[in-house]
């Protein structure tokens, strides 16, 4: 079985994600150092809290460069959850402007739902519209997920967005660039649909550059899905 490295950097609800992965009987290891990443075939970056504080915690553990090596160079499947998804962007603007990992071009900005009389934070269960070719959503119908956030990633390339949700306008509920995925909602807290999504992430087959794409709207814009040798 492939092993999932759950990145434990002090800015995530690691326990909750770990509980969900263990419930699914997946092989999980907590990754706290660059060396720990070596022992994992797929990586999950959870995240709770503010963008800059989460990013600083990754930096302090020397995980930023190490992640670049495993995720960008070696193309290990990667899933960022909530703030872990937002960190994929180039820049975040929560409390202060701070650079992110830069795997998905774009910036993280506050939801503008208050302008239309909706409440922020966006907290609760909401439905998403998803690209059916995205392996994360395989086997689902009309899924609802649990969201709790005030900020959203705004990808500069719309093809990075593989699922959208509505709260005072559409926002990116899930993004993908090749082997790199991010979800704004909390799959570990989304009961059946959430567990299914984690299971899909753990089991989807990584293929080389020939991912099915939706007509006129490729879901793998850079065509860079590459197999790791097994």
């Amino acid at each position: 079985m492939e092993r999932i490295g759950l990145i434990d950097y002090g800015a995530g609800n690691t326990t909750s994600v770990l509980n969900a992965l263990e419930h699914l009987r997946l092989d999980v290891t907590l990754a706290r150092t660059p060396e720990d990443l070596e022992n994992a075939d797929r990586l999950i970056l959870p995240g709770v809290g503010a963008f800059a504080s989460a990013m600083r915690k990754l930096e302090r553990l020397a995980l930023v460069d190490a992640l670049g090596d495993h995720v960008v160079e070696r193309k290990k499947p990667f899933l960022g959850i909530c703030v872990g998804m937002q960190l994929l962007a180039d820049l975040g603007h929560e409390f202060e402007t701070y650079p992110g990992l830069g795997y998905v071009a774009g910036e993280v900005k506050r939801l503008r739902a208050e302008e239309v009389g909706l409440r922020v934070p966006h907290i609760g269960w909401n439905e998403v519209d998803y690209d059916p070719s995205c392996p994360l959503f395989e086997g689902m119908s009309a899924p609802a997920f649990y969201f709790v956030h005030s900020y959203v990633i705004e990808p500069s390339d719309p093809t990075s967005t593989v699922a959208t949700c509505l709260h005072g306008g559409p926002f990116a509920a899930a993004v993908r660039r090749g082997n790199i995925f991010g979800v704004q909602f909390h799959p570990e807290k989304s009961q059946r649909d959430g567990l299914k999504l984690l299971e899909n992430f753990a089991s989807f087959e990584v293929t080389r550059g020939d991912e099915p794409t939706r007509q006129g709207r490729p879901s793998v814009a850079d065509g860079s899905l590459v197999i790791r040798s097994r």
Partner: peptide
Amino acid sequence: AKEFGAQC
């Protein structure tokens, strides 16, 4: 709020 984010 500063430590955990408002959502928490």
